[in-house]
Design a protein around this nucleic acid. Sequence first.
RNA 1: GGCGCUAUCGUCUAGGGGUUAGGACGGAAGAUUCUCAAUCUUCAAACCCGGGUUCGAUUCCCGGUAGCGCUACCA
Length: 482
Amino acid sequence: MLRVRFAPSPTGFLHVGSARTFIFNWLFARHHGGTMILRLDDTDAERNTEASVQSIFEGLRWLGLGWDEEYKQSERLALHRQVAETIFQKGMAYRDFTPPRSEEAEQSGSQGTWLFNADMRNLSRAESDRRAAAGEPFALRFKVPRDTPRDIQFSDAVYGEQSKSTADIEDFALLRSDGMPTYHLASCADDADLKISHIIRGQDHLSNTFKHILIFEGAGAQPPQFAHLPLLVAPDGTKLSKRKHGPVVSVTTYRDAGFLPEAFVNFLCLLGWSPKNDREVMSREELVQAFSLEGINRANAVVNFKEPATTPEETFDPKAVWLNAEHIRALPAEELCRRLLPIVRAAGHEVSPEKMLQITPLIRERIKLLNDVLTAADFFFVDQLPPYPVEELIPQKGDLAMAQRALEKAREVLPAVEFKHDALDQGLRAAAQELGLKAGQMFQPIRVAVCGRKNAPPLFETLEVLGKEKTLQRIGQALKKL
RNA sequence: GGCGCUAUCGUCUAGGGGUUAGGACGGAAGAUUCUCAAUCUUCAAACCCGGGUUCGAUUCCCGGUAGCGCUACCA
């Protein structure tokens, strides 16, 4: 049985990189009819917050993908300790009584090659037991094979054959001195217990995998299949982080800006994965159908957002915005209307669903983000048009006098015209001809009078939705400005 | 520092011993409708560097360089 998991640690909001990891796991599970598991890796009590848990759920809920089983690591501590005990009893781990963050501990990292503390590693069992019994705190470390180093090997579904000598693996901790399991232990213990068959996660864990295999072996469990994903990075090449890159790395930012979850999912899938047939705009079902581990790329992918965020449209990766527009256009009017309505209402406009449904087709091809409805269809919602410069009324190759003639003519003929596309078309074209104006010269002043700006949906459809009364009223107001 | 991973247009990517190195976004130009958008057409734009192997490497191998990751009693 195929079982995958997404295991975020609740130390911040849901990151776009995490979201992609979730999506790939989900796609893989759905493609193969497997089980998707959500596991909160919350063993770091210091950094975990309830707000973060909420933010993660909020983000996942918006993606709308769902999962089949749910666990919390903090509720499985007994299992973790039991696995630690098993490894310890097999003599594959030892107690390290070195106080945390002491001089010795500081030697690790860039200072030199810290692999193990010989004193602690070689402490006799009797001495170790005595000090432990005396209540002296200790961390439990894995006793990585050192006298006869061997290569730890595994085959990654994305990165291929991997190998590393135990001589290059440090004696990593299993249990902290407060008794809490470390990420490595908890993660592996749970993966084994939950019978995870495939671990699909960020490439930042690629080198940790050697340690994990050691733990699986120590616990007497079969390691699952691993598949590491290339990382998502910022335009400057560095890992995405909230502190450095701001809200663009949070999933909820995309939601709040008016992205469709299916478009967002589509976008994320294209970062580090390819169906290899040049397809880009894909529905959820098509993604499930096409997804495979073989399509995953090995190089990090840049999320191409603008560093200093200005307008929403510039903030996001242009491809994400384009995909969103594509998905918006693919939506049936009823469905798009349903998604637009809450946004319009939240902005304080009162619109009936029926009216909104009429407006929707007029703006569908003109918005890239759902929130654009507020600027694209504003004139439908307000009673009173915001002020606009009189010059806007001037048609191509015309002047204010021409605008005035056009508007007066419109005011004269429109009352007798049925407010339907074809009738308006005929009526206004005839009027233009009578005035000796080009159609565009006739339409432009009317458009501006009615919409308050030059760029707007096609005129007849607009007038039809707006209605005779409001149209004439706005033309009258425009005339007063002249 | 050690270990590991990666390297195709600005970005996401396809490809692979011999190709006009393909697609998409974005950019530019044009067509088109009443404006805008959408749509269509066209253009500019890439194989990190150096050695091998080979008749021939962007592709395979090695080295370099660069980037990223791990090197915590974080995950």
